[in-house]
Amino acid sequence: MPKPRDMDREEALSLVRRLMNADFMDEEEAGEALTRLERGLACPHISDYIYGDPAEPTAEQIVDRALTYKPFAL
């Protein structure tokens, strides 16, 4: 059963924008933001969406992609 999302889109957008702009005091704070996003959006791939996509998507595209993530059972 998928984990429920407990972060709204606006909060996620704010964190993703800060990560994309490197608007954090240090790496620990950025790591905490990524963890909040992973848990809050129930998407373990959010860091890949932010840092690993060569197409450089917008924050809105990243959050929308994370919101559509659905885990699958093996």
Rank of each mutant, 00 (worst) to 15 (best):
F72K: 14
L37W: 06
L74R: 13
A59M: 01
M20S: 10
P44E: 09
Y51R: 10
A59E: 02
E28S: 13
T68R: 15
R39E: 11
P57E: 05
D6N: 15
A55D: 10
C43F: 07
K70F: 15
T68W: 13
R36H: 11
A59S: 05
A73Y: 07
R18E: 07
D6H: 15
S14C: 11
P2W: 13
M25K: 12
D8A: 08
L37A: 06
A73M: 11
R17Q: 01
E32S: 08
P2R: 13
R39I: 08
E32H: 13
A42Y: 04
L67C: 02
M25V: 08
R39A: 13
E29L: 12
S14H: 14
V16R: 00
A30L: 03
D8W: 10
Y49A: 06
T68F: 14
P71M: 07
A33W: 01
E29I: 02
F24C: 01
A42C: 04
G31F: 01
E27S: 10
L15M: 05
Q61E: 14
C43G: 02
E10S: 05
E27T: 13
L37Q: 04
P71R: 06
S14I: 02
T68P: 04
M7C: 11
P71A: 06
Y51N: 10
Y69F: 11
A66C: 08
D64H: 02
L34T: 01
G40E: 04
R17L: 00
N21D: 04
D53F: 09
E10H: 06
P4N: 13
S47E: 12
K3T: 15
S47H: 15
A12K: 06
D6C: 11
V63C: 09
Y51E: 13
R36T: 04
A66P: 00
F72T: 14
C43N: 08
P54G: 10
A42N: 06
I46N: 10
E32V: 07
E32Q: 12
E60G: 04
L74V: 12
P4K: 15
V16Y: 01
D48V: 12
L34N: 02
M25L: 14
R18A: 01
A30V: 11
R36N: 09
R65P: 05
H45R: 15
L41S: 06
M7G: 08
A73E: 14
R17S: 00
E60T: 13
A73N: 11
D8F: 08
D48C: 09
I62N: 01
Y69W: 09
V16W: 01
P44I: 07
R9A: 00
